[in-house]
Simulated scan of single mutants.
Amino acid sequence: MIDSVKLDQPGEGRLAHAPSHHPGVPRAKVGVVVANLGTPDATDYWSMRRYLSEFLSDKRVVDYANWKWQPLLQLIILTKRPFSSGKAYRSIWNTEKDESPLLTITRAQTEKLTERLKALYGDSVDVDFCMRYGNPSTKSVLNRMKEKGCERIVFFPLYPQYGSPTTATANDEAFRALMKMKWQPSIRTVPAYFDQPSYIQALANSVTDVYRQLETRPTKLVASYHGVPERYLLEGDPYHCQCQKTTRLLREALGFGKEEVDTAFQSQFGPEKWVGPATVEHVASLARQGHKHIAIMSPAFSSDCVETLEEIKEEIHDSFMAAGGETFSYIPCLNDRDDHIAALVDVINNELSGWLPKP
């Protein structure tokens, strides 16, 4: 059990032997914060513009000099992009809860993680989630954790493969929040978990579950990852290599042959050369080669979002069908599947080592 200050009574109270005017101190515990990419608060123009401006102003996402990029972003891109992005979000929006599917799913994942970790550690662990862009913000959640007595925090970006525009920027935002605190909690950031056996098995299970429901077996499984400029790979970002290894480990877990599984990359943006092949072009090529039934999945996304529910299920689907494809089977992200939650708990347990006794 972690060391904690001695209080006169459980919960928040006065330090033993402290003067009467000493501020209350909550009982020490460990926080677990899962971090996802982000979401606009709504789909209207100004909500989308605020979200896109925050996202596309991040130097981890677009690392061009401000004098070159910001005028282009603010005066040209953000005059048009909020309309098209808003339309994309409206096509997948959770109208019942008036929020994006990413927010709905991340909340569901957090609730299940809370249940699992409470069963293992009782009240010693507090679980919450934040978004790198949009709400709930990283700063607000880390501040709330600190106020609740979390003197140690496991910060968990939900990206299986490490990427500078994903994992690194989430960690950056957490560190910026710590810079404003008088009393910083100790913090551990979770490394890439793309080769975690239970994560790979959950991916394999998701494929098997969908294939079992299909009348005919797809002749090709496409693992589509979010793309990055090729320059990132050449500058040392391991994301591309970790994506390739994820596909190999998944293929081996499924027992599929090399010819049955392809790796591709989606969501290209800007004039630079990106890692490839581009998913939207690759699926069309597969159709022209005679693959009339393919399945596609997104192992880099822990939750279904606009890149999967709109880009894959609409734009990439349409590209395949227009090129002569006949059946396009989408395999959902792992979301709040029980085997996915179990895999995330495995990762968290490893990071809690030395802070809490093994369950």
Results as ranks from 00 to 15, higher is better:
327 T>P: 00
135 N>K: 13
40 P>W: 09
52 L>D: 08
209 D>Q: 15
223 A>T: 08
347 V>L: 10
264 A>R: 03
77 I>L: 14
24 G>S: 11
74 Q>F: 10
220 K>H: 13
166 T>V: 08
292 K>H: 13
103 L>W: 12
179 M>T: 09
359 P>D: 14
23 P>N: 13
54 E>V: 11
66 N>A: 15
319 S>Y: 06
310 E>W: 12
33 V>P: 01
226 H>T: 08
32 V>K: 05
14 R>F: 07
59 K>E: 13
5 V>F: 08
349 N>T: 06
288 R>S: 14
170 A>M: 07
322 A>M: 11
150 C>G: 01
306 V>T: 14
57 S>I: 12
177 A>Q: 11
50 R>M: 09
183 W>G: 02
74 Q>W: 12
112 K>L: 12
153 I>V: 14
264 A>M: 02
32 V>C: 04
351 E>I: 01
163 G>H: 02
346 D>Y: 07
245 K>Y: 03
273 K>I: 14
280 V>F: 06
66 N>D: 15
66 N>I: 00
5 V>K: 07
221 L>Y: 11
98 D>T: 07
317 H>C: 08
261 V>N: 06
39 T>M: 08
166 T>M: 04
80 K>Q: 08
314 E>K: 13
233 L>A: 11
302 S>C: 15
137 S>H: 03
295 A>T: 07
313 K>Y: 01
337 R>L: 12
195 D>W: 06
292 K>I: 03
101 P>Q: 05
92 I>H: 02
150 C>H: 01
206 S>E: 06
339 D>T: 15
122 G>D: 13
70 Q>F: 10
351 E>H: 12
29 K>S: 02
172 D>V: 03
165 P>T: 10
155 F>N: 03
247 T>W: 00
173 E>P: 00
98 D>M: 10
147 E>H: 04
285 S>L: 01
89 Y>W: 07
22 H>D: 06
267 S>W: 05
25 V>I: 15
103 L>I: 09
132 R>F: 04
301 F>A: 05
229 P>E: 09
158 L>M: 15
285 S>C: 00
92 I>Q: 04
341 I>E: 08
19 P>R: 14
303 S>Q: 13
164 S>F: 04
221 L>V: 13
238 P>D: 09
277 P>I: 04
8 D>K: 12
65 A>S: 13
265 F>T: 05
186 S>L: 03
203 L>I: 04
252 E>S: 02
48 M>P: 00
219 T>N: 15
144 R>H: 06
333 C>S: 12
238 P>N: 08
261 V>A: 01
82 P>Q: 08
343 A>F: 06
143 N>L: 07
200 I>L: 10
171 N>Q: 09
297 M>L: 11
16 A>S: 08
326 E>N: 06
149 G>W: 04
111 E>L: 11
318 D>Q: 10
208 T>K: 15
241 C>A: 14
43 T>D: 05
141 V>A: 04
136 P>K: 05
165 P>E: 03
104 T>V: 14
147 E>I: 00
307 E>T: 11
257 G>A: 14
214 L>V: 02
114 T>M: 10
80 K>S: 06
235 E>G: 01
305 C>I: 09
173 E>Y: 08
124 S>V: 07
